[in-house]
């Protein structure tokens, strides 16, 4: 690996925790449920980039592609389940805010 590639790889390593922290910030501060899901999506984008970069700079992008594809599938399943939950929460509580769905009933 030459010097320029090493610099680029370090940039990719730097981006992953930054995107992850942006996602965690969204999850922690947002009151809207959809905004929380957007934060989770941004976290997975960081992991995708890190996987692709480690595959490319390690000299074997093929293995990394597998992991990325599996991760995208899991991402979509999470989003689908979450969207179903959100629609049902809105039906039941008439609200998207996490403040209003915090109380247990029964």
């Amino acid at each position: 690996m030459n010097a320029e590639s090493l610099i680029l790889f370090k940039f990719y390593i730097m981006i992953m925790p930054i995107l992850f922290i942006i996602g965690i910030f969204a999850v922690m501060t947002a009151k809207n449920i959809v905004a929380i899901i957007i934060g989770i999506e941004i976290m997975t984008k960081g992991v995708t980039l890190l996987l692709a970069a480690s595959g490319y700079f390690g000299g074997n992008p093929e293995i990394a592609q597998n992991f990325i594809i599996v991760m995208i599938i899991i991402e979509v399943v999470i989003l689908t389940i979450a969207s179903g939950l959100i629609v049902n929460i809105v039906k039941k509580y008439d609200s998207l805010s996490t403040k209003n769905i915090r109380n247990l009933k029964g």
């Binding site: 692709a52 970069a53 595959g55 490319y56 992008p61 592609q65 990325i68 594809i69 995208i72």
Partner: peptide
């Protein structure tokens, strides 16, 4: 990053 299949999925 030479991951075209993953890129198409994305």
């Amino acid at each position: 990053l030479k991951a075209p299949i993953a890129a198409m999925f994305e």
